[in-house]
């Protein structure tokens, strides 16, 4: 069991969403797209590495393209532990937010 920081959680989710095409560039793009904040390569590398260290992700070398100057990708995918973690997070999130709707929050403002 380990703790996940907020950014680690988001990166984990992004990798899940990207399926077979999760690597540095796509992860940063995906996160920028979903959070509306700029995610740079440097920002995703550390969480990716940490998640791999903690056993939520595994990585393998992908194909090299011309566009990458002949260098291969480091592709990530979720492990069983990673999936379990996502399930747990989803459960917790939903139970925390269960009785609060976006509308009621906005009304308070």
């Amino acid at each position: 069991m380990g703790f996940l920081s907020r950014s680690e959680e988001m990166v984990l989710l992004a990798v899940y969403r990207l399926k077979d095409n999760a690597y540095g560039v796509t992860a940063a793009e995906k996160l920028t797209e979903t959070t509306n904040k700029t995610w740079l390569l440097g920002t995703v590398y550390v969480p990716l590495e940490r998640l791999e260290q903690k056993g939520y992700l595994t990585s393998y070398t992908g194909n090299a393209t011309n566009k990458r100057g002949g260098r291969s990708k480091r592709l990530y995918k979720l492990t069983k532990l990673g999936l379990e973690a996502l399930i747990e997070i989803k459960n917790v999130e939903e139970s925390i937010w269960r009785d609060i709707s976006l509308d009621s929050l906005k009304k308070e403002l």
Partner: peptide, 11 residues
């Protein structure tokens, strides 16, 4: 490693 440099080249 090379994969990171590859990321930057792609960008």
């Amino acid at each position: 490693d090379d994969t990171r440099i590859g990321d930057f080249i792609e960008l």
